[in-house]
Design a protein around this nucleic acid. Structure first.
Lengths: 205, 205
DNA sequence: GTCTATAACTCGATAGAC
DNA sequence: GTCTATCGAGTTATAGAC
């Protein structure tokens, strides 16, 4: 309350912005505090003044980014839309998020690999992915003969794979397809449609 | 020639085996020469005697592993099999390779991200992925009305995504599906069939 | 070829002046 | 809050004995 409002392109924010960039580009091990300080336009000592240690600073960045990775997606799958519409929204949402955060997928996946249980708890907390709900939804449609039999896990893994992988393997994809950054993003934009069609064609009867 | 044949479960091989393990688990930055020495049952000095530096040793390991990643797969796509059979062989080959080398995908993708152009040249040399051949093959079948229209790039990216991603996100997948290592591998084994069906169902008319 | 010992250096962290 | 200076741990790399 009441005028605690200090200048808000503050040092802390500069640090966070710099740290985000450096950690996402280099990972925890690869990142250098000196590098972060330089990009923030300050010195190392200040980093430790604001965030006690490298680990603590990293933790902060990781949590902020991890939130982006799971979120709306769960709500979509839990909603009451028709299945094909869910699929479209789900994959569109994922691809949009990654298009706007090019290094996000790599960053999360890497750090989760380093320390799976801890990180998964940090990301999901007490909640869990909405598999049961999807299972139900699929069961109904399979019974009605509207789609081919498929396990919920398989469908989810397939959708996520199709969305995320091209971003993880982005340097390879760009090398193979000879696209620059702009063209790559355009390609992903088109992919939103083609990949949804790919999934739906695969399961519909 | 002539008796340069020295004992061949030699120190050098022990080092390479140890280095492979440590680098694949921790990446270039995370790996420690001490750790490699310990696992090889020797001391750090010897590492430098055989391979001048950490970088050089890493390079050696990276190249050996990278070879595994691309190879047979190209031959399959260039062969004269029917398309659906190609797809089956291609994806089966990929999943088998990754099942036997759990950390391979992560390792390669990470290090390629760190230095894309260099690494891609090291991996592919002068050759290129067999996109044109696939393009041709697809064009024929589309014309005959046997499959739906799809771009070769899209099909290739989709297939590779479906094969590789579950291994990259393995800790997440195992957490979500509550599977242990053994069950995960079994799951991937089943996936070989389900994922091939998924792709074929999607493109066949 | 293999070892021990240590040099040379990098980097996160802290002390202390302003 | 911000800076300079420096410490101290940890790591790669080398020297030199065997």
């Amino acid at each position: 309350m009441a005028k605690v409002t200090k200048n808000d392109t503050s040092t802390e924010e500069k640090i966070l912005a710099a740290a985000k960039q450096v950690f996402m580009e280099n990972g925890l091990d690869g990142a250098r505090m000196q590098d972060i300080a330089d990009r923030a336009g300050i010195n190392k000592a200040l980093l430790h003044y604001y965030f006690r240690s490298k680990e603590k600073l990293f933790e902060r960045i990781f949590m902020e980014e991890a939130q982006k990775f799971m979120p709306k997606v769960t709500t979509i799958m839990l909603s009451e839309m028709p299945l094909f519409e869910k699929i479209e929204k789900f994959m569109g949402e994922y691809i949009d998020t990654l298009s706007q955060n090019p290094l996000l997928a790599n960053f999360i996946l890497n750090e989760v690999s380093r320390n799976p249980k801890e990180m998964m708890k940090k990301i999901w907390g007490n909640s869990r992915p909405p598999i049961d709900k999807v299972e139900e939804h699929l069961a109904k449609l399979i019974k009605k003969g509207e789609i081919k039999p498929i396990r919920a896990y398989d469908l989810m893994i397939n959708m996520v794979s199709l969305c995320i992988f091209p971003f993880i393997a982005r340097p390879m994809v760009q090398w193979v397809t000879k696209t620059n950054d702009e063209e790559f993003i355009k390609m992903m934009e088109q992919r939103k449609k083609s990949v949804v069609r790919f999934v739906i064609d695969s399961i519909k009867k």
